[in-house]
Simulated assay, not measured.
Amino acid sequence: MVALKAQEVDRFVAKPPESVSLVLVYGPDTGLVSERAATLIKHAGGDDPDPFSQIKLDGSDISSDPNRLVDEALTISMFGGRRTIWVKDGSSKNIVPAVETLLRNPDQPSFVVIEAGDLKKTAPLRKKIEGDKLAVALPCFPDTAKDVDRLIDEETKAAGLMISREARMALHALLGADRRASRGELQKLCLYAMEDQRIESHHVEEIIGDASAFAMDELIDAAALGQLKTLDQGLERFEAGGMDAGVIASQALRHFQQLHFCKLETQKRRSADDVVGSLRPPVFWKRKSKMVRQVEIWPVEQLERALIRLNETVKTARLNAVLGPSILSHALLMIGQYASRLNR
């Protein structure tokens, strides 16, 4: 079965067909990958799942013993119901031989979910599952503005809270890179604003700003404006907190894509202030002047070079978690040094 399109994924996760026995969940948004894998396991297990029928395996468990996966999948649940098998970290080890063995047993009664990272189209695991009629591959990309709005609505409705337009705009500037992190921040915000019955922008600034200690946007703005001291401090704090270099690099790439778009628009005799002000979703008001300045100082050619550098950084950070932070730091510092000269 071919990989589902982004708009089809949520419908599939809400009600996976009984005919599907193997699902690969992959993509750059690790929080969304984990959330969707957990939802699939929950739906397959039913309302009152038997804990003995829910098996979790690490990728290393089945790469060293390819028969382990099919043995677990062919085991009949002791107390009835469908047995579920959740394979974690499926992209870090070669589990293709185990998956091939499993796919040769189409009548196996279990429901298997493999949680993986950002797999290329040519990745053997992804190709194998997309090419099988009883398996499905679900891509998980960073949230769009519409996704963030839906997430905000879900959490505020569950908490019984209203939210102001200004607070929603502020959240758009802070959320979206990682679904799990975004949901956690929203739940914390709702708890913080519970007594006021309505979330305002000051709630967002007070709880989300303080909790993250150093906003990702502030780090990226520091690089794009050449504020080297701020950038250096931000990188130190992110490293101390166990930075996800791939998430930060992706966010920086999207930001520079926006700058490139804005710069091209200014060449049509539009002011930087007008172009930035017309972006959708709107730029958080506290960041608007910073972004206008970035559009003003960066030449188109240099923005294109920065985009190439950041795109390479994203790929490397996702493939190598150990080297990711140092590669990201080097890329942002190089950008910051150039921006510092522009901003004099």
Rank of each mutant, 00 (worst) to 15 (best):
H43G: 00
H43K: 14
A44T: 05
A44V: 04
A44L: 03
A44E: 02
A44C: 04
A44M: 04
G45F: 03
G46W: 11
G46R: 11
G46K: 10
G46T: 12
D47G: 15
D47V: 14
D48F: 14
P49S: 09
D50S: 05
D50K: 03
D50R: 09
D50V: 07
D50M: 09
D50G: 04
P51H: 08
P51E: 06
F52L: 12
F52N: 00
S53C: 03
S53Q: 11
Q54I: 13
I55V: 12
K56W: 02
K56G: 00
L57D: 14
L57C: 12
L57A: 06
L57N: 11
L57P: 10
D58S: 14
D58K: 08
G59P: 04
G59M: 08
G59I: 05
G59W: 13
G59F: 11
G59C: 07
G59D: 05
D61R: 06
D61C: 01
D61A: 03
D61Q: 08
I62H: 13
I62W: 14
I62A: 07
S63W: 10
S63T: 06
S63R: 05
S64I: 01
S64R: 14
S64Y: 01
S64D: 13
S64A: 12
D65C: 01
D65S: 14
D65F: 08
D65V: 02
D65Y: 09
D65T: 01
P66A: 07
P66D: 07
P66Y: 11
P66L: 09
N67V: 03
N67I: 01
R68E: 05
R68S: 01
R68Y: 06
R68W: 05
R68V: 00
R68G: 02
L69V: 01
L69C: 09
L69F: 09
L69R: 12
L69P: 14
L69N: 12
V70M: 02
V70R: 08
V70T: 13
V70I: 15
D71L: 03
D71M: 07
E72I: 00
E72D: 07
E72T: 00
E72G: 00
E72R: 08
